[in-house]
């Protein structure tokens, strides 16, 4: 079997795993925020938005059929996230700078984000090698694993809307946030 045909057969599985991974990244970052009381900075929030934007492309693939347009959504989102995360790496690149937040497995979250966005770009490049036209471009039913991935993704987006509103309200966030000022209003 040709490589492109194999890729086309695996597309749904790989997109599902990709969406689960993106939802997992966002849930992990939120759990870290709550447990270690490390609030996300504006650039950290930008990276979360970029992960969410990339997830839209994968969700569209799963729900409306695999199309190059959807991989384009993931690619542009990953490029945006790469810009934000690389900017934060550069902000803390000077010797003696402790970085922002606690490291995870030796690297800060924004460094892991650079790696993750790069992996997403490579993934899309490989998947676009599959010369595939989806025979069912209309909306299609969702399997159990796809439903779980989509629900995990949608729920963490909703959680992020609430968390960011509590942290920043309806204005800009402080560069080094330490509290949830909007919790006082509840």
């Amino acid at each position: 079997m040709q490589l492109s045909a194999r890729l086309a057969r695996c597309a749904t599985w790989l997109d599902t795993l990709g969406l689960l991974a993106l939802a997992g990244v966002l849930w992990f970052a939120f759990a870290w925020q709550l447990l270690l009381h490390e609030l996300p900075c504006p650039l950290c929030l930008l990276q979360r938005v970029a992960f969410a934007m990339a997830g839209i492309g994968l969700l569209l693939n799963l729900r409306s059929g695999v199309r190059p347009l959807h991989y384009g959504v993931v690619i542009l989102s990953s490029l945006a996230g790469l810009v934000a995360s690389a900017r934060q790496v550069l902000l803390h690149i000077a010797p003696g700078d402790p970085g922002y937040g606690s490291p995870f497995m030796g690297l800060h979250f924004y460094t892991w984000a650079v790696v993750a966005f790069f992996v997403l770009l490579v993934y899309c490049g490989v998947m676009l090698l599959a010369d595939r036209v989806d025979e069912r471009p209309q909306s299609r039913g969702l399997g159990l694993l796809v439903r779980i991935a989509a629900l995990a993704f949608l729920s963490i987006l909703l959680v992020n809307v609430v968390g960011t509103t509590l942290e920043c309200g309806f204005g800009p966030c402080p560069d080094n946030p330490t509290a949830y000022p909007w919790l006082r209003w509840l």
Binding site: P42, G55, R63, F153, T164, G171
Partner: peptide, 21 residues
């Protein structure tokens, strides 16, 4: 600059993707 705005718009996008629109 409203910081939570892109989270709202991306949530709307995800909702429409989930609904097949």
């Amino acid at each position: 600059m409203v910081m939570m705005l892109p989270f709202v718009t991306v949530l709307l996008s995800a909702w429409f993707a989930w609904r097949g629109s």
